[in-house]
Nucleic acid binder design. Structure first.
Length: 808
DNA sequence: CCCCTGTTATTTTTT
DNA sequence: ATAACAGGGG
């Protein structure tokens, strides 16, 4: 009992002791939020609240597990429901699915399943994909689902052209899902939200059952989630939410920041607790984070403070390119491990995109540094695992058409695309599942006897498999592998690809099944296993127990902490991402993303960027992230490696400026920071500032677009930048000098799209010279139709290798 | 029908 | 750089 209150601050205690009524906990990073939540649950249990009256909803399984283990430590063995929103809904749907047309053994489509289903729906809806890609349509439908918009509601209301297309596909997609007795991720929430809304008695029942609801990371809730928790907190308004508006980074997925900002309006009687004391980071780190996030408009001001010792200054490091960045960081980490007694697991490297981990991987491997990538190729996404899972799905739910299509010809047994197409058409026509259609293969019109018998063969394998459906998972899977000769198939088809060992993955899969059997000796049902698999995310695979450096995206980093953190690629178009900076909202979310990354650091933090970075093959000059100008540069130690001059590279001076348009630091004593072995011999600090870029309030809008500048460059080749020259317009100068000029430019990828006009002569590696006869579309879709000697061809200008031919 | 090859399109974040 | 795709030969 005393353990519950031990070492709590006043604010924390206030939250912990709150039992009835709405509660808002605004928790800054590292403020002991989980501690408060778990202690509060323990406190409630100790004060008469029955465990089954509590539901604690999280976004990730990892968070749920963390909560579970810490509650267990305080109040062992209490059956409090803890898990993700999606799992919560999935389990309700097992019970109430009948009310929305699903039977108990419904399947959850993962992303790739849903993608397949979407393509089929698009085809069935007879919608052309010329104006909207399947992905765009899927995204539009997903957005609608997150906002609780049903197919019927979309009719007539659709405004944008994209939505009009989506509105046509949406009902077909939903119908096909229903026929397949399946849901996608969004449906889990949507179905439950609708069910509760349309069935007051169910709502009341659940409201009464879950008398106390806790929501973690409330800033990440979307409308569907919001509707669910609100609806279940009417009769018993004991809704406790924790969150931090500054850490909302899932707006792109439908999360609505207003849910937390307006919580106090939703529940006027709310008790609000602010947790502002930080237990995680040094003041240095915290100051940088705080300065950055102050630039956001949409937030609730919190005053972060800490009692922690000052620690090392935050480091901003500038590298020449992505390889040097990776090598430099790997060297530093290796050095810190060998000289300072730090462990690999003390380090984490964050980046905006998964693709950026590649160079780090190489660097780590070369130094034999153990690492783990949180979002590499996910285990359950591997071909061999998906194959086996699809069989299991089909056993569990014969209507699972996506699974059927995946496995009907695995291993290859003579059922080709044409055959599948005919089965699908037959199934669509009679509105039956494909497996059902396959049973009548011989009577399907236009299906060759040979094909029909191949299909029949599959059906009989399937039927034999189903007999084992009630056996243990282990038996079922082993039987499956044996029956279809999967091992032989793998050996034959997976022609020795380096470092992939499919059979080892299969073994691991069997191990996972054995483990599931062991943990669910009684209720080890197939659908429970499949649900489990469907709802585990990649980030949940993060293994904290092994001693490895962790590589992951900034998104994946939320909720974690590490002694030493590196954030790479703090560059414009990366953070903020080029596709997330057009609106103020997106821009602020990107700022929050960086904030989240920064606040993961306990002791040391290094932000880094490159002067140039390879983007899909070609190397491009880099613009520093605008967020760097918002940091307290006087608190930051800036390190820039000396430029290695390639005497033979005449272009170098033009391409890569010596001066960087970040303010110089007054602190230029050159002493090594404690952050590993940075700034060693051979890379003496090379600090040259060109002054601040001035008042940066309009930084983004004032930024010249690449295109403007290129046009200019084409007319006036940039002179070589001398090391001492300081341009009055650093921004522009930098971009200019980063570009190749003259003929180089024309042959490179930097030709302005505007140069391609009707009548212009171009050269193509394959077709020779030709004349542009038409130009259509905009942005990346801008397309030129070219008349060559060998006929007409169309090219996406952003991708095609079309050279301009110098006009005579 | 299967497999290989060359071609083309595609790049954010994920429950 | 990589994945998905289309088309042709076996």
């Amino acid at each position: 009992m005393d353990a519950i209150f031990q070492d709590l601050t006043d604010a924390q205690r206030e939250a912990v002791t709150h039992v009835d009524g709405p509660l808002l906990i605004l928790a800054g990073p590292g403020s002991g939020k989980t501690r408060v939540v778990t202690h509060r649950i323990a406190h409630m249990l100790a004060n008469g609240v029955r465990p089954w009256q509590i539901a604690a909803l999280t976004f990730t399984n990892k968070a749920a597990e963390e909560m579970r283990s810490r509650v267990d430590a305080l109040a062992p063995g209490q059956p409090v429901w803890m898990g993700t929103f999606h799992r919560f809904c999935a389990q309700l749907l097992r019970r109430y699915g009948g009310m929305v047309g699903l039977s108990e053994n419904y399947s959850i489509y993962d992303m790739s399943d849903a993608k397949q289903a979407m393509k089929r729906a698009i085809a069935a809806a007879d919608v052309s994909t010329t104006h909207a890609s399947p992905e765009q349509i899927a995204a539009a439908i997903s957005r609608s689902k997150n906002r609780l918009i049903t197919p019927e509601m979309m009719e007539g209301h659709s405004l944008t052209p994209g939505d009009t297309i989506a509105a046509k596909v949406y009902p077909v997609y939903q119908q096909q899902l229903l026929t397949a007795n399946a849901v996608d991720f969004d449906d889990l929430l949507l179905h439950i939200a609708r069910l509760i809304r349309e069935n007051p008695e169910v709502r009341a029942e659940l409201d009464a059952k879950f008398k106390y609801i806790l929501v973690d990371e409330y800033q990440d809730t979307n409308l569907a989630q919001y509707a669910i928790v609100r609806a279940l907190s009417i009769d018993n308004p004991n809704l406790a939410v924790t969150g931090d508006p500054d850490q909302s980074i899932y707006g792109w997925r439908g999360a609505d920041l207003n849910n937390i900002l307006d919580f106090e309006k939703d529940y006027p009687s709310v008790k609000t607790v602010r947790l502002e004391k930080n237990y995680r980071s040094t003041p240095n780190v915290l100051r940088v984070a705080d300065q950055l996030i102050r630039h956001n408009q949409k937030r609730k001001q919190k005053d972060l403070f800490t009692d922690n010792p000052e620690g090392d200054p935050v480091v901003l490091r500038i590298f020449e390119d992505g390889y040097k960045e990776a090598d430099g960081i790997a060297d530093e980490i290796a050095a810190a491990i060998s000289t300072e007694g730090l462990k690999p697991s003390d380090f984490a490297v964050f980046c905006r995109m998964n693709a950026l981990t590649r160079s780090l991987e190489h660097a780590f491997r070369a130094r034999a540094l153990p690492y783990q990538i949180v979002n590499g190729v996910e285990f359950y996404q591997r071909r061999e695992i998906k194959d086996l899972l699809a069989y299991l799905h089909l056993v569990n739910n014969p209507n699972h058409d996506v699974a059927f299509q995946r496995v009907v010809n695995v291993p290859t047994r003579g059922v080709g695309a044409k055959t599948i197409e005919k089965i699908r058409a037959h199934a669509d026509y009679h509105r039956i599942p494909m497996l059902e259609a396959a049973r009548h293969a011989s009577s399907i019109e236009g299906l060759a006897k040979r094909s029909a018998s191949a299909v029949t063969k599959f059906v009989s394998i399937y039927d034999r498999l189903c007999i084992k459906a009630t056996a243990t998972l282990e038996d079922l899977i082993r039987y499956l592998i044996e029956e279809i000769g999967y091992e032989a198939y793998l050996e034959k088809s997976m022609v020795e690809q380096q470092d992939s060992n499919p059979m080892a993955n299969v073994d691991e899969f069997v191990t996972a099944a054995v483990e599931f059997d062991r943990r669910h000796p009684e209720d080890g049902s197939l659908d429970a296993f499949l649900e489990q698999v469907a709802l585990v995310a990649d980030t949940d695979a993060l293994d904290g127990s092994t001693d490895r450096v962790t590589l992951m995206t900034l998104h994946a980093a939320k909720g974690l902490e590490f002694p030493c953190v590196y954030i790479i690629g703090v560059e414009d178009d990366l953070i903020p991402h080029s596709r997330s900076k057009s609106t103020e909202q997106e821009f602020e979310e990107e700022r929050r993303l960086l904030f989240v990354g920064i606040t993961r650091a306990e002791q040391r933090l290094q932000l880094s960027l490159c002067k140039r970075r390879a983007v899909r093959g070609d190397i491009r000059p880099v613009i520093p992230s605008p967020f760097l100008n918002e940091l307290p540069l006087e608190d930051i130690k800036r390190i820039e490696s000396a430029v290695e001059r390639n005497w033979f590279d005449e272009e170098f001076d033009q391409s890569y400026p010596d001066s960087w348009d970040l303010p110089d630091l007054s602190d230029s004593d050159g002493a090594d920071s404690d952050l590993g072995d940075i700034d060693q011999a051979g890379s003496a600090a090379h600090r040259k500032g060109s002054g601040s870029i001035g008042d940066d309030t309009d930084f983004v809008s004032e930024m010249p677009t690449l295109m403007n500048v290129v046009d200019e460059a084409a007319q006036v080749p940039a002179p070589p930048t001398s090391a001492s020259s300081v341009s009055s317009k650093p921004k522009k100068k930098m971009i200019l000098s980063g570009l190749k000029t003259g003929a180089d430019m024309l042959s490179g990828g930097a030709t302005p799209l505007t140069a391609y006009r009707e009548g212009v002569q171009v050269r193509h590696g394959e077709h020779g010279e030709g004349t542009i006869i038409a130009v259509t579309g905009r942005g990346p879709k801008r397309t030129a139709k070219v008349q060559f000697d060998d006929g007409e061809h169309s090219f996406r200008l952003a991708y095609a290798k079309l050279e301009l031919v110098d006009s005579p």
